[in-house]
Amino acid sequence: MKKFFAAAIAGLGLAVTASAASAQAPSTLAQVKQRNILNCGSNTGLAGFGVPDAQGNWQGLDVEYCRAIAAAIFNDPNKVKFIPLSAKDRFTALQSGEVDVLVRNSTWTMTRDASLGIVFTGVNYYDGQGFMVRKKLGVTSAKQLSGASVCTQQGTTTELNLADYFRANNLKYEVVAFASSDETIKAYDAGRCDAFTTDASGLYAERLKLTAPDDHIVLPEIISKEPLGPSVRNNDSGWFNLVKWVHYAMINAEELGVTKANVDEMLKSPNPEIKRLLGTEGKFGETIGLTPDWVVRIVKHVGNYGESFEKNVGQGSLLKIARGQNGLWTKGGLQYAPPVR
């Protein structure tokens, strides 16, 4: 009788483990490989981060992040299906598995990280609220804006940040708020206010819509933290690592001077750090489910972080955003990647 129970319990245990194993869905990487295309949740249109060009191909910093992941997995940056998501349905699309990774200029906040079932993998763009003023005002710092009228959009965190900053610095100011971003920039252009404020990346894009963009400057102060980064579901740490390390690989490549143009020569480099990064020494790529030469593929197809930045939002683009906070840590910025070893 005892034996029978033991057998029954063992059988039950087996059944439970078996069902648990079958309930375990295949890893995201396996799904992506099997589907032979990466589903990337992208923006419906944001200058420098994700915009369709005249041929309808998506271009931008966030878009290139997805292309880099595809290059690392498939050696083909075009094996990406971009699924444009609105601000409202972006996290649901990620939770439900409609997209494998969400690279859609989403701000990394504690609530989102902790309660949505998603996890941010890093920061591919440090954004924050900035100010734009006319050059002829002779203002070089936001601290000199005392008594200024500031154009901003109604009911956004922008408006609250503005109040916080001016109060903290004991500056007088007057808010001129508008319902849409379009009205706001029009009012600023018409001279209704001295300064215009929104997220810094947006300031550069809005500046181009002014009648004389060159008469305006963006002040160096950033008064809020808006770390933008990709996110993945929090139930697959392997995939989380892969997405995270694609970004680190691009930063390490920039730090070590590996570019799109010289990556083939760099393969012969005696520098051990470059050797580890490019997979000529060690098999670090295999730890995240890829082949050892995964970084070579990323850099060859997309470039390092600096190249991607300059091409999409920096000096190579019309936005001409300075590296600033997004510079390498060695150059006073915040972009820092753990070593490959």
Binding site: A47, V51, P52, A205, K209, L318
Partner: peptide
């Protein structure tokens, strides 16, 4: 939103 054609 495309900077290529961003004008007033």
């Amino acid at each position: 939103v495309d900077p290529t054609w961003a004008t007033p």
